[in-house]
Computed example of a mutant assay.
Amino acid sequence: MKASALSSETLRRIALLFPPQQREPVARLLFEECGNNLPFLENYDAQQLERFQFAALKSSDGNLDRLYQMIDLAQKDWRDLLVAAEFAYDCSEHQRWLPPSRF
């Protein structure tokens, strides 16, 4: 299994959603718990993982506790996470999602 670093677009969305003191923990959480460790995504690179990481971020709405819940959902079945984020039916929908800046 290769470990893919977070993409610049994932880091951008983290910065838009979370306050500065939470950004590093959020990035680490996504990297360690919502990346190549997900079933069938072992060989995905950072860009291929964006769909799943963006889904967790979108569904969290900038709330760290909610992010933990969404990552837990992804670990059980990431298809449910994609449905929750409305990314399930269009493989490029996640690329169009950009949250408004909160900080």
Rank of each mutant, 00 (worst) to 15 (best):
M1P: 10
K2A: 14
L6E: 04
E9C: 07
E9H: 11
L11K: 10
L11D: 04
I14Q: 05
I14L: 05
I14K: 05
L16A: 14
L16C: 05
F18K: 08
P20H: 05
P20A: 11
P20R: 09
Q21T: 11
Q21D: 15
Q22W: 04
P25N: 01
P25E: 03
L30A: 03
L30P: 03
F31M: 07
E33Q: 15
C34E: 02
C34D: 04
G35T: 06
N36Q: 09
F40V: 12
F40A: 14
F40K: 12
N43M: 14
Y44D: 13
Y44K: 10
D45N: 15
D45Y: 12
D45S: 08
A46H: 10
L49W: 01
L49F: 02
E50R: 04
R51I: 08
F52E: 12
F52N: 08
Q53L: 03
A55F: 00
L57F: 03
L57R: 03
G62E: 10
N63M: 05
N63G: 02
L64T: 10
L64C: 06
D72Y: 12
D72W: 09
L73G: 00
L73F: 01
L73E: 09
Q75P: 03
Q75W: 02
K76F: 12
R79K: 11
D80W: 05
D80Y: 06
D80A: 11
A84W: 00
A85K: 03
A85Q: 04
E86K: 09
E86S: 13
E86C: 06
C91M: 12
S92T: 13
H94Q: 02
H94I: 01
Q95L: 14
L98H: 06
P100W: 09
F103H: 14
